[in-house]
Amino acid sequence: MRKVDPARYRAKRRSIMDAAAPLFATHGPDGTSTAAIRRAAGVSSGALFHYFPSKRAVFVALLTDEEGDNADRITAARTHEDPWQALLDLVEHLAAPAGSPVAAGLVMEGLRQAQRDPELAEALETDSDTELEALTHLVTRAAREHRTEPVLGPRATAGWIQTLIGALFLRAATEPGFDAAAHVRDLRALLSRLLGCTTG
Score class of each variant (00 low, 15 high):
Met17Ile: 05
Phe49His: 15
Ala61Ser: 12
Leu23Thr: 04
Thr26Ala: 12
Ala11Gly: 04
Arg13Thr: 11
Val43Phe: 04
Ile16Thr: 00
Ile16Trp: 02
Thr34Gln: 15
Gly42Asn: 07
Met17Cys: 07
Ala47Ile: 06
Ile16Glu: 04
Pro29Phe: 09
Ala57Met: 05
Gly42Asp: 01
Ala36Ile: 08
Phe49Tyr: 12
Asp30Cys: 06
Ser15Ile: 01
Ala19Asn: 06
Phe59Ile: 07
Leu23Met: 12
Ser44Asp: 07
Ala21Trp: 00
Arg39Gln: 14
Ala41Pro: 10
Val58Gly: 04
Ala40Ser: 10
Ser54Val: 06
Leu62Ile: 06
Gly28Asn: 04
Ser45Asn: 14
Gly28Tyr: 08
Ala61Val: 02
Val58Lys: 01
Ile37Asn: 02
Gly46Glu: 06
Leu62Ser: 08
Arg38Gly: 01
Phe49Cys: 03
Arg10Tyr: 08
Leu23Asp: 06
Met17Pro: 03
Leu23Arg: 07
Ala47Ser: 14
Ile16Tyr: 04
Ala41Glu: 11
Pro29His: 15
Met17Glu: 12
Lys12Thr: 15
Met17Lys: 04
Phe24Ser: 02
Phe52Leu: 01
Phe52Tyr: 03
Ser45Thr: 14
Gly28Ala: 07
Leu63Cys: 03
His50Thr: 11
Ser33Gly: 10
Tyr51Lys: 05
Val60Cys: 00
Gly42Arg: 09
Val43His: 01
Phe49Pro: 00
Ser45Arg: 14
Gly31Lys: 08
Ser54Thr: 05
Gly42Ile: 11
Ala40Asn: 13
Leu48Asp: 05
Arg38Cys: 05
Ser15Phe: 00
Gly46Ser: 05
Leu63Trp: 09
His50Leu: 13
Gly31Ser: 10
Asp18Leu: 14
Gly42Trp: 06
Ala40Met: 15
Ala21Phe: 02
Arg39Val: 14
Val60Trp: 03
